[in-house]
Design a binder for these strands. Structure first.
Lengths: 354, 354
DNA sequence: CTGTTAGCGCTTTCAT
DNA sequence: ATGAAAGCGCTAACAG
C-alpha cells in the first residue's frame, strides 16, 4: 500500500511550506502560479487522496447544508434517505456542520413549488434535493445554479439540470428488473396490473415514469403479448383505494400479478390480505417496514431496493468533499438494484452500512 | 442529533481530568474505582460513541494485525475479501498499522495446517482468519485463545470457537436462497446437479457443507421429489473436470439445472459454453469477474453474493475498535445475500462501499 | 492514582 | 505570496 504522506512531506517535496500546500489543497487562493504548479505536480506524483476524517480537527469554518425532500411519516421511504443523510452528518460532526431539512408534499405540485421557493431563498453552502416533479425541480435548480449553490440529487436524476452529482438507481433498469421478476413468477398468459397513485397537479413522478418505461421495455423485449392494465390507489385514502381495486379486479379477471413503482406496495398487499387473495403475485419497491412485513407474510413476492441510506450518506459525503477539497465527484452514481425475497430479507435489513 | 461532547467536556461532567477520561476510554488502568465509575456513568448518560477517525491523530502505539486467508490468484473470491481488509487498513493508515497476510491452499488440508502453525507463532495484536477446514481451524484458534490473541472470522463461522466476531453470510440461508432461485427457473420435474470440488485431505469446506444443508432443506420443504445428483470438478484441472462432466451428464440426462456452492461456477459455465449447452440453468456464488462474464453471457442464470469487501473491511474495523476502545463488537454479523441476474449486475459491480 | 503537558497532522491566522 | 506559529481534540508521557 502507498506510503503515508503528510502535508509536511508534500511541502518538502514541492519546496514550499505546509501553509502553501494547504492553500492549494483547498483552493483558497493567494498562491503563485509557480507554487501551485509545483504542489499540484507533487500531489499528482504521489497520488495524494485527501482524507476527510483526518483533516477535520482544525477546521473552523462552518458549513451549512440544506436538504429538500418529500415529507414522510415514520416508516416511509424517504425516511431511509434522510437517515443516511443524518448518519453522514453525525459521522462528520466534528466539521461544524449545520443541516436544515425542508419538506414538501410529493403528491402535490403546489406544495413542492412553495417549498422550493422557500429553499431558493436560503443562503447555504450546498443543497441535497430529492426530486419528484420534473419541471418544478428544473426551475428550482436553475435558480440554484445562477446563485452558484451546488446541489446533489438523491433518488432520481432530473434531465436538463447541472447537479454536482446524483446518487440513486437507474430507474429504467429498476423497472426492467421488476418486469423480469414479475414475469418469472406469474402464470404464463396471465395479465399484469400496474398500480399507480392518483396525484394532484401532475401525472406521475419522474422516478415512476422512468421505471414504467423500463418495465414496458422488458415486456416488449420478452413477452410482447402480455396484457397490461392500470390500477389506481389513493395514497391517503385506503377505503377509496380498496373500492377502486374492487372495481379494477372485477373488470380485469385475468390479472396474474401486479407491480408498484413506488414504495406503496403495502397498499395493494393490504388489499390482498384483507380480501384473502393469494393467487396474484406482487412486486414492489423499497424495504420499508410495511412492505417487509407483507413480504414475510407472502402477500408481496418480491421487493427491489436501491440503498436509500447509502444514497443519503454519499450525497452528504460528496458534498463535503467538494466543499472542503473542491473534489469533483462522479456525476452519475447508480446504486445497486437489490432483489429481496422472503428468504433473504432478514439478513438484508439487519445489516448496516460500513 | 446529539450534541458533540469532547473528552474535555466529559472530564468536566465527571469531575476528573481529561487524562483520566482517556484512561477509562482505553481501559489503560491506573484509575480508581470511584473515578472509573463516575466517568463510565457520564459516558453512559451522554451515550458517548468513540470515533476511530477522530481519535487517531495522537495515537503512538503500533498495532500489528495478521490475516490468514486461502491463497488466491487475481480475480478469485478471496481477493475481494482481502481488498476489503486493505481498504480498511488504508482508511485507518494514520494509526500506525502493520498488517501481514499468510496464505494457505484451501484445497489442501496439510497446507492449511502448516500455515496455521506458522501463524500461531506470530506475535501480533489480533488476527483475521478465513477458515476452510473445520477441525484445523478449531485447533488453531484454541491456541490463539490460550495465547490471548483475539481473532475475527470472515466468510464462515466455525463452531466451538471463541472469536471476537464473525462477518459473513448465514451459509444455511444462502443455500436455501440458492435452492429457491434454482427451483424457480428450472423446468418442473427436472433433476438438479450439485457441483463440488474434489479436494485433498478433507471432504468439503465448512462453508460448502452449510450451504448444502440449506439447499437440501429448501428442497425438502418445497420440492421433496426433485432428484439430486452430484457432479464433480477438479479445481486446477479443466480437462479432467470436463471429462468428469461429460460422464456426469451422460449418466444424468434429466438434469435441468445445477448449483455450485463456492465461487467456481465459471468452471461449469465454461463447460456449457464450450459444449454449446443452453438448456441447463445454473446458479452460483460470488461476483468474481469470470462468473460475472458468464452471467452476462447467459451461461450462468443467477449469482448470489455476500459482500466480501464489506466482510474484510468490517473485520478490520471491529478489530481496531476492540484494540483501541475495548469495544466488544456484535458476535455474529450476517451479511446480506445479494441476488444478481443479468439485469442488475452492472450497477452492482460498479458501486463501491460507503 | 491523577492532573498537567507535550506532541500528532492539519488548518488558519499573522507577520512579513 | 509565503513561512512561521498557534490551535483543534486527542493520546500518552511525566511529574507528582
Amino acid at each position: 500500500m502507498t506510503k503515508k504522506y503528510r502535508v509536511k512531506d508534500i511541502a518538502e517535496l514541492a519546496g514550499v511550506s505546509a501553509g502553501t500546500v494547504d492553500r492549494v489543497l483547498h483552493n483558497r487562493g493567494d498562491v503563485s502560479e509557480e507554487s501551485r504548479a509545483k504542489v499540484e505536480q507533487t500531489l499528482e506524483s504521489i497520488n495524494y487522496q485527501p482524507n476527510i476524517h483526518r483533516s477535520s480537527i482544525g477546521v473552523k469554518r462552518k458549513y451549512r447544508l440544506l436538504a429538500v425532500l418529500p415529507q414522510f411519516v415514520h416508516g416511509e421511504y424517504w425516511e431511509q434517505i434522510e437517515n443516511g443523510i443524518r448518519k453522514a452528518i453525525y459521522e462528520f460532526s466534528h466539521l461544524n456542520l449545520n443541516i436544515e431539512v425542508l419538506y414538501y408534499d410529493q403528491f402535490d405540485l403546489f406544495s413542492c413549488r412553495s417549498t422550493f421557493s422557500e429553499a431558493a431563498k436560503k443562503d447555504v453552502d450546498a443543497m441535497i434535493v430529492g426530486p419528484t416533479f420534473h419541471d418544478e425541480t428544473m426551475h428550482f435548480t436553475n435558480i440554484l445554479s445562477s446563485k452558484g449553490i451546488p446541489y446533489v440529487f438523491v433518488d432520481v436524476m432530473v434531465d436538463n439540470t447541472d447537479p454536482l452529482a446524483f446518487y440513486g438507481p437507474d430507474s429504467f433498469a429498476s423497472g426492467y428488473v421488476e418486469a423480469r421478476l414479475l414475469l418469472s413468477i406469474i402464470e404464463r398468459g396471465a395479465d399484469i396490473a400496474l398500480f399507480q397513485a392518483r396525484r394532484v397537479g401532475d401525472e406521475s413522478s419522474t422516478q415512476v415514469i422512468a421505471r414504467k418505461y423500463g418495465f414496458m421495455a422488458y415486456l416488449k423485449d420478452h413477452s410482447p403479448d402480455t396484457k397490461v392494465a392500470y390500477g389506481y390507489y389513493y395514497n391517503s385514502d385506503p377505503a377509496r383505494s380498496w373500492e377502486a381495486m374492487d372495481k379494477f379486479f372485477a373488470e380485469n379477471p385475468n390479472i396474474g400479478g401486479g407491480v408498484v413503482f413506488n414504495s406503496r406496495a403495502y397498499i395493494v398487499s393490504g388489499y390482498f390480505r384483507e380480501k384473502g387473495i393469494k393467487n396474484i403475485r406482487l412486486v414492489g419497491c423499497a424495504t420499508i417496514p410495511r412492505n417487509v412485513e407483507d413480504l414475510r407474510a407472502g402477500y408481496i413476492d418480491c421487493l427491489i431496493a436501491e440503498r436509500p441510506e447509502y444514497q443519503g450518506y454519499m450525497a452528504v459525503k460528496a458534498t463535503l468533499e467538494y466543499l472542503l477539497y473542491n473534489k469533483q465527484p462522479t456525476l452519475l452514481n447508480f446504486t445497486p438494484i437489490d432483489i429481496l425475497i422472503k428468504e433473504n430479507i432478514d439478513c438484508y435489513i439487519n445489516t448496516e452500512m460500513a
